[in-house]
């Protein structure tokens, strides 16, 4: 790929984006930072407390537990959704009526509001009245996600995979479409096997979309809130209490704006740091 030319006037092209996003980001963010370093006793008076909240949050065991659960969850769904999405994209027809059918059906889970997704699966997986729960129990499994932590996790993961794999698949499909025919033609003439074509033509050319897919799923799964809350409420116990659920419990349940704000910032920083690392790794060879 030929080198990009240096052109500082390109800033004009980027300006609308910066303004639009900046307006939404910078001002509100300052508000949050503000809260995070202050103490209030509810009477709208704030006292500057410095890093007390950050300190408290970072050292709490409860926070560590939620963080661990979160990391585990994210790791599992990434390991399932990315390969599955890519496999589906590779196997889908490229054109014709079946391609349209596939695309429309695949996109459906993505379009359902997240609270409905949670509610759907909530009923769907209930042992006595839901299709999944009832079938599993009929098949001999002792399955009750409201009581068994393992079942709760399995259901949560199944729900997320069901909900979001299509995102990866759609991105991968678009990425595959954008590979010019000439590459396939050259590979054909070079006598490459399907596996060689995948490894040397398709996968490299899908790098961009795969980076986007992985990072998107990483970020979103780290922030996931509505679906698990509606599905399990964080339970049984706190088996599925992921990071954002914990955060909201603290903020709303205890009206502790200070710790909550501090926690959200730490949360944000963790995502930022990990995403940055991911990003650097995946775009390494573009230097």
């Amino acid at each position: 790929m030929s080198a990009k030319t240096v052109n500082h006037r390109a800033w004009w092209l980027v300006l609308p984006v910066v303004l639009l996003v900046g307006f939404n980001a910078v001002i509100p963010l300052m508000t949050v930072v503000n809260y995070s370093v202050q103490e209030t006793f509810g009477n709208n008076r704030f006292f500057f407390e410095g890093v007390k909240w950050f300190d408290q949050v970072v050292h709490s065991a409860r926070f560590h537990d939620a963080l661990t659960r979160q990391m585990l969850f994210t790791a599992i769904i990434l390991a399932i959704e990315v390969p599955l999405g890519v496999a589906v994209a590779l196997a889908m027809p490229r054109k014709g009526v079946w391609a349209s059918v596939c695309l429309v059906l695949m996109s459906m889970p993505l379009l359902i509001p997240w609270n409905v997704v949670g509610a759907m699966w909530n009923i769907f997986a209930l042992p006595d009245i839901g299709l999944l729960g009832w079938t599993l129990n009929k098949l001999g499994f002792d399955y009750n996600y409201t009581r068994q932590p393992f079942a709760a996790w399995a259901t949560l993961i199944a729900m997320d995979v069901w909900h979001w794999t299509s995102l990866v698949a759609l991105l991968a499909y678009a990425g595959l479409s954008a590979i010019p025919d000439a590459y396939y033609q050259a590979a054909k003439i070079d006598g490459a096997s399907s596996w060689a074509v995948f490894r040397h033509v398709q996968l490299p050319k899908m790098k961009h979309v795969l980076t986007i897919a992985v990072l998107l799923r990483f970020m979103d799964s780290f922030m996931i809130y509505t679906e698990p809350v509606v599905l399990t409420g964080g339970g049984p116990g706190n088996a599925t209490t992921l990071l954002s659920i914990d955060l909201v419990k603290i903020a709303l349940g205890q009206f502790d704006l200070g710790p909550a704000a501090a926690m959200s910032l730490i949360y944000f920083l963790i995502i930022l740091l990990l995403s940055w690392m991911f990003y650097r790794v995946m775009t390494l060879d573009e230097e």
Binding site: A182, Q185, K205
Partner: peptide, 12 residues
Amino acid sequence: AQVFQFPVVYDT
């Protein structure tokens, strides 16, 4: 063998 209009190489 065929050489195409835009260079086709295996980038990786």
